[in-house]
Simulated assay, not measured.
Amino acid sequence: MFKIRRSRDFQHVLLSSPQEEQFNKLHDRFLCSGLGKIYRAVPWDEMAWALGLAEAEMGPRPIFSPRCKVAGMFLMHYVGCSDRKLVEGLNGKPDRHFFQSIYLGAERLVNHKIGSVVRCELEAKLDMGTVQKALYGNWSAYIDGRPATDMDATC
């Protein structure tokens, strides 16, 4: 079994100068894309907290961080893909690595049920009121004049 590394944990340590420059160019290009704009607009850590997700304090570190799990569900909805297509996209598209804050390197995911497992975990912890407060707290400056805010709970 291979080990997936979170991009935040290692990108400045393992990459040599030419690779780091290429990585930074890819990341900058990602931030300018539609997906990158969503990535910057969503309060990922607040969403993970609102969903009751936290880093494991004991035992081995899970492959996906709480932020990565929430981002994966956003990504599935944004792209309109199935669990299998999500994993295939993670295996082949660097933008999706950036969106989920992971880096697979030369390794590939083979378990196409990851999306279902994460979706079930989030569903069990979902409290719509807390999620709405987290989103409204971040976006209230942009929706001041609106008397109501709608939210879709389907994934």
Score class of each variant (00 low, 15 high):
Phe10Ser: 08
Val13Cys: 06
Val13Pro: 02
Leu15Cys: 01
Leu15Gln: 01
Ser17Lys: 07
Ser17Asn: 14
Gln19Pro: 04
Gln19Lys: 12
Phe23Met: 07
Asn24Leu: 13
Leu26Asn: 05
Leu26Glu: 11
His27Arg: 11
Asp28Ser: 13
Arg29Val: 03
Phe30Thr: 02
Leu31Ile: 05
Leu31His: 02
Leu31Lys: 01
Gly34Phe: 01
Gly36Asp: 02
Ile38Lys: 05
Tyr39Ser: 04
Val42Met: 14
Val42Lys: 03
Glu46Arg: 12
Ala48Cys: 09
Trp49Phe: 06
Trp49Leu: 10
Ala50Leu: 09
Leu51Pro: 00
Gly52Thr: 11
Gly52Glu: 10
Gly52Arg: 00
Leu53Trp: 07
Glu55Gln: 14
Ala56Trp: 00
Glu57Gln: 14
Gly59Cys: 01
Pro62Lys: 14
Pro62Asn: 07
Pro62Gln: 08
Phe64Asn: 07
Phe64Glu: 07
Pro66Phe: 11
Arg67His: 01
Cys68Met: 02
Lys69Arg: 15
Ala71Asn: 03
Gly72Lys: 05
Phe74Val: 15
Phe74His: 13
Leu75Trp: 05
His77Glu: 08
Tyr78Phe: 15
Ser82Asn: 05
Ser82Gln: 07
Lys85Arg: 06
Leu86Tyr: 11
Val87Arg: 03
Val87Gly: 05
Glu88Phe: 07
Glu88Ile: 08
Asn91Lys: 04
Gly92Ala: 09
Lys93Gly: 04
Lys93Asn: 12
Lys93Phe: 03
Asp95Ala: 08
Asp95Asn: 11
Asp95Pro: 06
Asp95Gly: 13
His97Leu: 00
Phe99Trp: 08
Phe99Lys: 12
Gln100Gly: 06
Gln100Asp: 02
Ser101Thr: 13
Ser101Leu: 10
Ile102Glu: 03
Ile102Trp: 04
Tyr103Gln: 04
Leu104Gly: 06
Gly105Tyr: 02
Ala106Gln: 01
Glu107Asp: 15
Glu107His: 10
Arg108Glu: 13
Arg108Tyr: 07
Val110Phe: 15
His112Asp: 12
Lys113Leu: 09
Ser116Asp: 12
Ser116Val: 10
Val117Cys: 11
Cys120Ser: 14
Cys120Lys: 12
Cys120Met: 06
Cys120Pro: 01
Glu121Arg: 06
Glu123Ile: 06
Ala124Phe: 06
Lys125Arg: 15
Leu126Phe: 15
Asp127Pro: 00
